[in-house]
């Protein structure tokens, strides 16, 4: 019981610190404090726009997709299919990057290859299809096209370099973390 509350305290430490900091701002500079909280509430609403369905889809995937299936399509020997699926899943996603990490967790936990998961994260970060439309509208097709083409290579280079640089121990630790987080 005691361990549990210590664990809880540790997990909420960052949040507690931020509460103290923002309350201090509210007291010292009320104007800014109000802005901080209204911006924070905006972020919460933005989260509610996409995160609940993402987590439900993660739960469904976790329950219904067999490990063997995941290994076949996204695992070590999945080859080009794993790469393409990674790009597709990442770019079809919605919402901020922090939504990608729980998705990465469940994919790793089901036996997905590390590089393929980093492709999901990279594509999620930089080449989401709905966002590309916004980008063309705001920045023009030239800007968008340069970035998109570079990003395809960038995402691949980063994903494979990471897999190369991370040693067996790091890799084991990542799979272990993914297991812990999707329990």
């Amino acid at each position: 019981m005691k361990n549990k509350s210590i664990e809880l305290m540790k997990r909420y430490r960052f949040f507690a610190i931020m509460i103290v900091v923002t309350l201090a701002i509210l007291v010292v500079k009320p104007d800014m404090g109000v802005r901080v909280y209204s911006l924070a509430f905006n972020s919460v609403f933005e989260m509610l726009g996409v995160l609940p369905p993402i987590f439900i889809l993660i739960g469904l995937l976790d329950v219904w997709v067999k490990k063997e299936t995941m290994v076949k399509y996204m695992g070590k020997d999945s080859g080009i299919i794993g790469v393409l699926l990674g790009f597709f899943l990442g770019s079809a996603a919605a919402g901020p990057l922090y939504g990608a990490f729980p998705v990465a967790g469940v994919f790793l936990n089901k036996g997905s290859r590390l590089a393929n998961v980093f492709i999901i994260v990279g594509a999620w970060a930089s080449m989401k299809i709905p966002l590309l439309l916004f980008e063309v509208a705001a920045m023009g097709w030239q800007f968008t096209l340069i970035r998109l083409v570079m990003d395809i290579f960038g995402v691949l280079v980063i994903a494979y370099s990471m897999e190369k640089i991370l040693n067996d121990d790091d890799e084991r630790q990542i799979y272990e973390l993914a297991r812990k987080m999707s329990q």
Binding site: Y12, F15, M18, T22, L39, A40, S43, V44, F101, M181
Partner: peptide, 15 residues
């Protein structure tokens, strides 16, 4: 699992 970090981050973004 990630709620505590989220809540902290949301406030940090505001700041």
């Amino acid at each position: 699992n990630i709620l505590p970090q989220f809540l902290g981050i949301v406030l940090l973004i505001g700041v």
